[in-house]
């Protein structure tokens, strides 16, 4: 994990690329939330994924006894 001193300029530069002007005051206000997002990403990276893993899933009604499967919502 990067230090706060390393993260603050990174946040400013990322924000500039997005067209967002983060002042020093806003960077200080947002730092804890950003570190929380990075920590969540670190945990997510511990999950092994197959090379074929895709970021989509389609929900469908499971076939019930005597009933037909039905198409569901896409996400």
């Amino acid at each position: 994990m990067l230090s706060d001193a390393e993260l603050k300029p990174l946040m400013k530069q990322l924000a500039r690329v997005l067209g967002l002007n983060l002042t020093d005051e806003r960077v200080d206000a947002d730092l804890a939330a950003y570190k929380g997002h990075l920590a969540a990403n670190e945990k997510i990276r511990t999950v092994p994924l197959a090379m074929e893993a895709e970021p989509f899933v389609r929900l469908e009604r499971t076939r019930r006894a005597g009933g037909a499967g039905r198409p569901g919502g896409a996400r």
Partner: peptide, 30 residues
Amino acid sequence: TSVRRDVEAGSLVTAVQYLRAQKVRAKFTR
């Protein structure tokens, strides 16, 4: 409230990070 802080910081989440989360989401759902 924390809304502005959260969404400003959320703007800095990269597309690759978002899509990795989505892949793990699909894995969990299956």
